[in-house]
């Protein structure tokens, strides 16, 4: 990586990436953000012209799939969407067979989301096409972590007026349901690799055992978690969890862990508020804060397209073919 090049065929998780590789992806993204921001003319570049990108989603997803699809289109690729309901998996076809069929139509990039951790990894090892993990079980969601790190870095650079500023020493609090969150896992790995300090806050029933071994501080006290932080990262509370009695009541969760105008007073004034979406308004995050000045939630959405363009460009054009 010394020359700043890229050599990977696939993007499976943040865990395998070095700090230099993550930085290369973040540094590649601004030129792609500029394409979407073109006020006049054509919002497209020909880097993936004539390539086929298949979005293969076994779990429901609208925004991640749309983001990948738009990213592929902005790179002039052809796109094809497959969902579990429309695929032959319901007819008993195995994953490998389905993928072999996708490859038989000469897909170059396959973006996969699957409920089982490890599926993208297994497929990447056995197939020649470029695999991008768009979320696998509770394992990882690498492009989400990359777009989050990019958003934090961009906002930090704007605030400090320093175009070289890095995440080193930055304090990030991740609040909510860490247990079921691949977003949290990928974010912890990514932020820590970039030199940031990560704190987790949530009910202990929604906190994975042994998570502190990832080198993070864990607390169930929101005031403690938000003191001195630069970023408050709220996670989506999956409401169906309540049925499993993982927390006593929604009202209690809100009282103890909701990020709102009152609890944001624990954090410094410059602290950013982030959320991977979709938001449960007035559950994990109050509407006032979600729509407030400190929220960069919609910037995350815009940056997601640029980051996914950067990832596809690096995988396909970076010389990572085996």
């Amino acid at each position: 990586m010394a020359d700043g090049g890229w050599s990977r065929k696939d993007l499976i998780g943040i865990e395998a990436l070095s700090r230099d590789e993550i930085t290369l992806i973040l540094d590649t993204a601004p030129q792609f953000a500029a394409i979407s921001e073109r006020s006049s003319g054509i919002k497209k570049v020909p880097l993936l012209k004539g390539r086929l990108v298949v979005n293969w989603f076994y779990e429901p997803s609208t925004r991640t799939r749309n983001s990948f699809e738009l990213a592929a289109k902005r790179l002039s690729a052809d796109t094809l969407a497959m969902t579990a309901a429309s695929s032959s998996s319901v007819k008993g076809e195995t994953l490998h067979d389905t993928l072999a069929n996708i490859e038989a139509i000469h897909a170059d990039v396959i973006v996969i989301r699957h409920g089982c951790a490890g599926v993208p990894h297994i497929l990447a090892d056995r197939h020649a096409s470029h695999i991008i993990n768009a979320g696998d079980g509770r394992h990882e969601h690498p492009t989400q972590a990359l777009l989050d790190a990019y958003t934090i870095r961009k906002q930090l650079r704007l605030r400090l007026g320093d175009p070289e500023a890095t995440l080193d020493g930055l304090k990030v609090a991740i609040v909510g349901d860490v247990e079921h969150s691949r977003v949290a896992r990928s974010n912890i790995l990514c932020l820590k690799r970039l030199g940031a300090e990560v704190r987790l806050c949530g009910p202990s029933t929604l906190m994975p055992q042994g998570i502190a071994q990832m080198g993070v501080q864990v607390t169930a006290n929101l005031e403690e978690a938000l003191a001195d932080v630069d970023v408050v990262y709220t996670l989506r509370l999956q409401l169906e969890r309540q049925a499993k009695a993982l927390f006593p009541s929604l009202r209690e969760y809100i009282r103890l862990f909701q990020v709102n105008t009152a609890t944001m007073r624990y954090a410094p004034e410059h602290a950013l508020v982030m959320h991977p979406g979709p938001i449960n308004r007035d559950v994990e995050l109050s509407s006032e804060v979600a729509d407030g000045e400190r929220s960069v939630i919609l910037d995350q959405v815009s940056n997601g397209v640029a980051i996914r363009m950067a990832v596809m460009h690096l995988l396909v054009n970076g010389g990572g073919q085996e």
Binding site: D3, G4, G5, W6, T23, L24, D27, T28, P30, Q31, A34, H313, L314, N317, G318, G319
Partner: peptide
């Protein structure tokens, strides 16, 4: 093409 982090942008 060798992908390197870009030296400058349009």
């Amino acid at each position: 093409g060798v992908v390197k982090s870009p030296k400058g942008e349009t």
